[in-house]
Design a protein around this nucleic acid. Structure first.
Lengths: 219, 219
DNA sequence: CATAAGTCGACTGTTTACAGTCGGTAGTGG
DNA sequence: CCACTACCGACTGTAAACAGTCGACTTATG
C-alpha cells in the first residue's frame, strides 16, 4: 500500500524516515505548518503514510534541530520565533561562519576553495531571476559550502543543525526581507576577503554580512 | 492514588527514552562502549530493558550529537575520534564559547553573571580533591553555565549538542590529559576578563584557554 | 446557579510482532 | 584446492496494538 507513494525514481535509497524528515522540514519552513501549531502523531503518520514509530524518530531529530518545541506531556508544536531568538540564531550562525572564514584563510590549498566558492556564486547569480525559494536555496548552499570546504566535519554538522532555525528565521521575517540579504555582490566580497588570505579581514567581512542580515530580518 | 508515587525533589520523572539516553551517553563517554564498537539494537534494548522502538529514538539523538556514526545499511557504531577531529571539535567549541564571553560582556546585568560564575568556580574548587570524573563534570558545568548565562538559547543548545563530542575528546585523549586543562586559576582568569566588560579581552582569554586545552589533549 | 465529582475522548509512551535485506558459511562441482 | 551457489542467520526498517495520563465536557448536588 505504501509502495506507491513515490517509488518510480531511480534512486530510492532514502529511508522513509529521511523522506519524512525532509517533508516535515519543508512543511515547517514553508509555513504550511504554521508556528505554534500542535502536531499530532497519528495525524502526521497518516498524512505521511508512515508508522508512528518511524515518525517519532524523525520528530526527535526535528526537535533537536530546533524546529519543534516540546510542551508539557511531550506534546510537540512548531516553534515560534520572536525577534530576539532570530538575533540569537544569527549570532551563533555568525560565530560558526566566522570560524569557517578564518579556517579557510589558513588552508594550504586555497585554489580549490576559490573555485568551489565561485561556483556557488555562479549558482546564486543564475538564481537571481528565479523564485524566492530558489534564491534562498542557493544562498544557503553558498554558506553551507563555506563550512564544508573547511574540512571540519564538526563545524559543518553544527551549521547544518542550525540550518532549520535559519530557514525559520527567514520564513518568519518574510521571504522578501530574507532575499534582501542575498545580494550576489555581498557574497563576492566574502570570497574576495577569503582570497586575500587575511583571516582577520575575512572574519570581519562575514560578521558584517551576518550583522546586516540579522538587522534586515528583524527590521 | 498513583499520582504521588514519585514526589521527589525538583527531579522530573524521566521517560525511558531519556533514561536510555543518559545511560548510553555515560557508557560511551566512559569508554564502557569502546570506540568503533558496533551497536546491535536487540542487544542494547535487552541490556537497557527497553523496547527497540524506544531505543531507536535515543540512538537517533546520539547519532545527531556525534557520539555515534552510521555505517552502511544504517548500522551504528561508537564514533572514533582522531587528533584532527578533536582539534576540529575544540575549534567549534572555541567559536561558541568566545561568542558567549563576548555576549556576557555586553549584558546589562553582569552582577548575576559574576555571582553564578563564581559559584561554578567554587564548585570546581570543591571538586579539586575529588575523582577525575567529578573534576571533568564541574569543568563542563562551568562552561555550560557560561553559555547559559548569555540567555541565548540557541547558543546553549548548540553547545550542549557538542558536549558529547567534547566528553569523547577528553575520554579519548585520556582523562589525565583532560584534567590538566581544569586549573581553577585559568578559569578565574576567564571570569575576571568577563568582569572587566572588555569583550575583546574576554574573547581572547577564552580562545587561549581553548587553544591550550586542545593542544594538551592532542599532545 | 455555581461548584465539584465523574465520565469520555484524545494523545503520547511503550511494547510486540512482521517483513526485507545483507553477509557469511557450508556444501557441491570443477 | 578453488570457485560458485544456495541456504541460514542476524540485523534493520516498519507496522500495529496496548497502556497510562491529562484535559474537556457533562452531570449531579449544595
Amino acid at each position: 500500500m505504501a509502495g506507491l507513494t513515490a517509488p518510480l525514481l531511480g534512486l530510492e535509497k532514502k529511508s522513509l524516515r529521511e523522506q519524512a524528515l525532509s517533508a516535515l522540514r519543508t512543511a515547517i519552513t514553508s509555513g504550511e505548518l504554521e508556528p505554534g501549531r500542535h502536531l499530532v502523531e497519528t495525524e502526521l503518520s497518516e498524512m505521511l503514510q508512515i508508522s508512528r514509530g518511524t515518525l517519532r524518530e524523525a520528530l526527535r531529530q526535528l526537535e533537536q534541530e530546533g524546529l519543534l518545541s516540546a510542551g508539557p506531556r511531550g506534546r510537540l508544536s512548531v516553534r515560534h520565533l520572536d525577534e530576539k531568538e532570530i538575533r540569537d540564531i544569527y549570532a551563533v550562525r555568525a560565530a560558526l561562519e566566522s570560524l569557517a572564514a578564518r579556517t579557510l584563510c589558513e588552508l594550504p590549498d586555497r585554489q580549490h576553495v576559490t573555485e568551489s566558492l565561485h561556483q556557488a556564486i555562479d549558482a546564486m547569480t543564475a538564481a537571481t531571476g528565479g523564485s524566492l525559494e530558489e534564491r534562498i536555496e542557493s544562498d544557503l548552499e553558498f554558506h553551507r559550502t563555506l563550512c564544508r570546504l573547511t574540512g571540519n566535519e564538526t563545524l559543518l554538522h553544527s551549521w547544518e543543525s542550525l540550518e532549520g532555525s535559519i530557514r525559520m528565521s527567514i520564513m518568519f521575517a518574510g521571504l522578501e526581507k530574507g532575499v534582501s540579504n542575498m545580494s550576489v555582490d555581498r557574497h563576492k566580497d566574502i570570497v574576495a576577503a577569503i582570497d586575500t588570505g587575511d583571516a582577520t579581514l575575512a572574519r570581519k567581512t562575514i560578521l558584517e554580512h551576518m550583522d546586516t542580515a540579522a538587522a534586515n530580518l528583524v527590521a
